[in-house]
């Protein structure tokens, strides 16, 4: 087994043991932080997968929430209808083996459905470039949302309850690890250099024998798959889905994370996902403490304004993202590899 694969297995085992020993303790004693922890995981998956499309391949997709919605509703419907039959789970309660198996299957199903949606959207729309692609993907996201809003078996605007809260730290951070592994090992190969050539110069890439359409579709499908997985995690954590949870602003949130982290820098995007999930909550926490003088309390009460202001400042000072394309970070780590 190669070293990178060993690292992956090690990371997965680590996630499993943390989940096995610490899950209940964290969930019952620090429920609020547990909630944030899961949100961070979901956002990391969404952002690192979108980074493959927007960062490494240089396409501009604004429809990631759409794929997440496909995954969330797919896994919810699967669990609602099939879990009682396959795993004997009634009203979301069953033995741990059954619920974990059910979670695994529904995540796979969610990813597969989102990947199919990604393929269906990608093939026709990836002929478009730049702004046009952004508009088409934005349109796709809205179509998904409005479709769900009108589909009665998905709960329409009433929302859809998902039995059981299967999502735990293992599934969340296991998926995070897997997503990062997939993106990094794809990009760090001769095959994966193709994604970067598409971003840098499509004409030159074609002239070097690289099928740019194939690469764009591949990036889109992989990203959609993981958005679907993130959707499944979200669905089985919140236990209740509404179409409004997957609106245009959800997509923008993910794009903001990718841009802030630095397009094409996985480590930067992971960092930004953590930062931008914690920041609004941290600002909320600061609002009612004694550390902040009363005069500034009003600023913190309008924390979304402050949040936007921080984003603007960050973008002005680090237009290439927190970590740029990652080369500076690698240098800082003191290792310079050929890839």
């Amino acid at each position: 087994m190669s070293r990178s694969l060993l690292n992956l297995v090690f990371a997965l085992v680590l996630c499993a043991s943390i989940s096995f020993f610490g899950e209940n303790f964290i969930a019952s004693n620090f429920a609020y932080y547990y909630d944030i922890l899961i949100s961070i995981g979901v956002n990391i998956i969404l952002a690192t997968s979108l980074n493959l499309v927007n960062g490494y391949t240089g396409q501009f997709s604004l429809g990631h929430a759409g794929f997440m919605a496909v995954g969330a509703y797919a896994s919810a419907s699967w669990s609602n209808h099939l879990d009682p039959i396959i795993f004997g789970i009634v009203n979301g309660s069953g033995n741990p083996v059954a619920t974990n198996a059910a979670m695994f299957v529904s995540m796979l199903f969610a990813g597969a459905m989102a990947a199919i949606a990604g393929f269906a959207v990608g093939v026709p729309s990836l002929r478009l470039k730049g702004d046009y692609l952004a508009i088409v993907t934005l349109g796709f996201g809205e179509i998904i949302r409005v479709a769900i809003l009108n589909l009665d078996f998905l709960g329409a605007s009433r929302g859809l309850s998902v039995p059981g809260t299967y999502t735990n730290l293992f599934w969340t951070y296991g998926s995070v690890v897997l997503c990062i592994y997939v993106v990094l090992s794809l990009v760090h190969s001769t095959y994966g250099r193709g994604f970067l050539t598409v971003r840098d110069d499509e004409v030159a890439a074609e002239a070097m024998g690289i099928n740019t359409t194939k690469y764009k579709v591949a990036a889109f499908v992989v990203a959609a798959f993981f958005a679907g997985v993130a959707g499944a995690l979200y669905a089985h954590f919140k236990a209740f889905l509404t179409p409004e949870g997957f609106n245009f602003f959800r997509s923008v949130d993910v794009v903001v994370i990718v841009i802030l982290g630095g397009m094409g820098s996985t480590i930067g995007v992971v960092f930004a996902a953590v930062l931008l999930t914690i920041l609004p909550e941290a600002l909320r926490g600061l609002a009612h403490t004694e550390f902040v003088p009363a005069a500034y309390q009003v600023l913190l009460e309008n924390r979304l304004i402050l949040y936007s202001l921080l984003l603007i400042i960050l973008m002005l000072t680090r237009p290439q993202g927190l970590f740029g394309d990652g080369t500076a970070f690698k240098k800082w780590l003191g290792r310079s590899r050929a890839d």
Binding site: L196, T197, R199, D200, D201, M208, A338
Partner: peptide, 12 residues
């Protein structure tokens, strides 16, 4: 390919 090194340009 502007964002790639000399090595990666050829490797690609």
């Amino acid at each position: 390919f502007g964002s790639l090194t000399v090595f990666d340009n050829v490797r690609a």
